[in-house]
């Protein structure tokens, strides 16, 4: 896998095509907006999306953990699609999470969908956390851009080349702050040109689109 390193507030982060950021100096893996159990949340409204979104996310997280062997995993909020999500996990999925909890220290940042992760989940919950030069929170703040790593916005970008347009989830950064793409299998996206994203960044903004084997830079 080709790795793309970027600098955010002086710290080097590796952007993975799976949509996670890897911070080698701190052996920390960062994921945003996993939205576990989004499928079953829809099923409650009688729309039966395939009930495999949680397993799909778990599988990808397991692959990432096997590759990087992180000491710490930070989930940037909206890890569950709704507050009842944890109660809908089945035993296999709970075991899977427990096993991952034994392999690394998990920090569950609170999101707007999951303001209070359940107590039985391994790791600890926090509204935000600062480590070294970086601050991790769910929703990007309007003020403190420097060193902020956030999620919430589900950025996507479209490129057009030879008459074909390709839309992909993406990271967005201007070197001061980084917004991660949503990790969840069913998470929708917001175009990086929309004001909600564009207004967060300065002039030197870049999008990194998720490809099959690596991420690709594009103007945003």
């Amino acid at each position: 896998m080709d790795e793309t390193g970027i600098a955010v507030n002086g710290e080097t982060l590796v952007l993975t095509p799976a949509g996670a950021a890897w911070w080698p100096a701190q052996r920390t893996l960062v994921l945003a907006d996993i939205h576990f159990e989004k499928g079953s949340a829809y099923a409650r409204g009688r729309q039966f999306l395939p009930p495999y979104d949680t397993r799909s996310a778990l599988k990808r997280i397991r692959t990432l953990m096997a590759h990087h062997a992180p000491a710490r995993v930070i989930a940037l909020g909206d890890s569950f699609h709704d507050p009842y999500g944890p109660s809908r996990l089945d035993d296999f999925e709970k075991d899977c999470l427990a096993e991952m909890g034994r392999q690394a220290e998990w920090i569950w940042i609170k999101g707007n969908h999951d303001p209070a992760p359940p107590s039985w989940l391994s790791g600890r919950a926090a509204s935000e956390i600062s480590i070294g030069a970086l601050t991790f929170r769910h929703e990007p703040s309007s003020a403190s851009a420097r060193g902020e790593i956030a999620g919430h916005l589900h950025p996507c970008a479209t490129i057009t080349r030879r008459g074909h347009s390709i839309r992909r989830r993406c990271f967005v950064t201007d070197g001061r702050r980084l917004v991660l793409p949503a990790f969840g299998a069913y998470a929708g996206g917001l175009d990086v040109r929309e004001a909600a994203i564009r207004s967060l960044f300065g002039e030197r903004v870049r999008a990194y689109l998720l490809g099959a084997r690596r991420v690709y830079a594009a103007a945003a």
Binding site: I159, R161, Y216, A217, A218, A219
Partner: peptide, 13 residues
């Protein structure tokens, strides 16, 4: 399709 992403990146560079 990944080639197109790469092409786009090269143009940017």
């Amino acid at each position: 399709r990944d080639d197109l992403l790469r092409e786009n990146e090269d143009a940017l560079v």
